[in-house]
């Protein structure tokens, strides 16, 4: 049960201390506010894509069986279903379906061999392209190839297991709300690690209970809502925004002071983009405007100096007092 009286008292106390702060918007390199979506977006390939969405964009689809001369109603297989809205608000919305998939798909029934179609991965399109240089796809690919996930590639692991190309949205650069990024990114991990149906497609390991595995973590709910899985489970990398080198579980971060310290690793991971942007605006403590608060990392240089000065003055006054007492 919440404690309304406690909250009221606390609020009253906090209001006395609080001051309004301009929420720093996250800007792109040209200093312009980036916007994610686009409800008004109309694809130049809308008509072409609609031929696919007619079936793949819905749960139930219909087609005419020319051999039998009957109209067939069927349910679209879950992993062959693409949400129109998701696609047209994703980063890949500018594409035609056949930019990535074989043009043979325009025929129906689809030719059987298309099931064996080689899928593109991120690096196939984004690698070596100046336009995407700031995203460091080559570095991401290098990291991925060193990660534990790469060892599952023979079992079918690809970029798409985490990043659905039909709905992928860039997150951390485009949101002012860090909590959204945390939920977004953790959902990616949990889509397999807390869904045994998907997990067992790639691993022979037994089902993992995430909560039990992390029961050593104090204030577990706060941690899960305030940091991403990758903060502790990846190797830090200064050159890319989101680390992709997933480490074996034995090498994950378990020391509290890796985050709860002056040089918190969160500054190089979760808060990297925001703090970099805020420093551009001259803000000294990159963490303070974030949604979260990290004990040991949220230090204010000026308050530290002030506290030392006040403490020093008190000791000095006591020293002077002792001097005159004993004189």
């Amino acid at each position: 049960m919440k404690l309304p009286v406690f909250r009221l008292v606390l609020t009253a106390g906090l209001i006395a201390l609080s001051f309004s702060a301009a929420a720093a918007g996250f800007r792109n390199q040209n200093g312009e506010k980036e916007t994610q979506d686009t409800t008004s977006f109309t694809s130049p390939f809308y008509e072409d894509n609609e031929r696919c969405f007619e079936c793949h964009g819905q749960e139930r689809y219909e087609y005419k069986n020319d051999n039998l001369g009957t109209q067939v109603k069927a349910l679209m297989c879950e992993n062959r279903r693409i949400g129109r809205d998701d696609f047209y608000s994703s980063n890949h919305k500018y594409f035609s379906c056949t930019d990535c998939h074989s043009s043979d798909y325009v025929t129906f029934p689809h030719p059987g061999q298309l099931r064996m179609e080689q899928m593109y991965t991120c690096i196939d399109c984004h690698g070596g392209d100046e336009k995407f240089a700031k995203f460091s796809f080559e570095e991401i690919e290098t990291e991925y190839q060193k990660s534990t996930h790469f060892s599952l590639e023979k079992d079918g692991f690809t970029c798409w297991k985490c990043h659905n190309p039909h709905s992928y949205k860039i997150s951390i650069r485009n949101t002012e709300n860090l909590k959204e990024t945390i939920v977004f990114d953790n959902t990616i991990c949990l889509s397999c690690h807390s869904d045994f149906r998907r997990f067992q497609l790639l691993s022979d390991l037994e089902e993992i209970n995430i909560l039990e595995k992390h029961d050593w973590l104090p204030n577990q709910a706060s941690h899960f809502g305030s940091v991403r899985c990758i903060e502790c489970h990846t190797m830090q990398n200064d050159t890319i925004l989101v680390a992709h080198l997933i480490r074996p579980k034995e090498e994950s971060v378990k020391q509290c002071n890796e985050c709860h310290s002056k040089n918190s690793l969160l500054m190089a991971t979760l808060y990297k983009f925001q703090s970099r942007e805020q420093r551009r605006d001259g803000f000294v403590n990159g963490i303070i405007l974030n949604e979260s608060y990290v004990i040991g990392a949220n230090r204010n240089r000026y308050l530290n100096i002030l506290s030392l000065v006040v403490f020093g003055i008190v000791i000095l006054i006591i020293g002077i007092h002792i001097f005159f007492r004993t004189k």
Binding site: R7, L10, I15, S20, A21, A23, L289, N290, S292, Y293
Partner: peptide, 8 residues
Amino acid sequence: INRIFGIS
């Protein structure tokens, strides 16, 4: 309370 005048 999550945010007070824009501050955590």
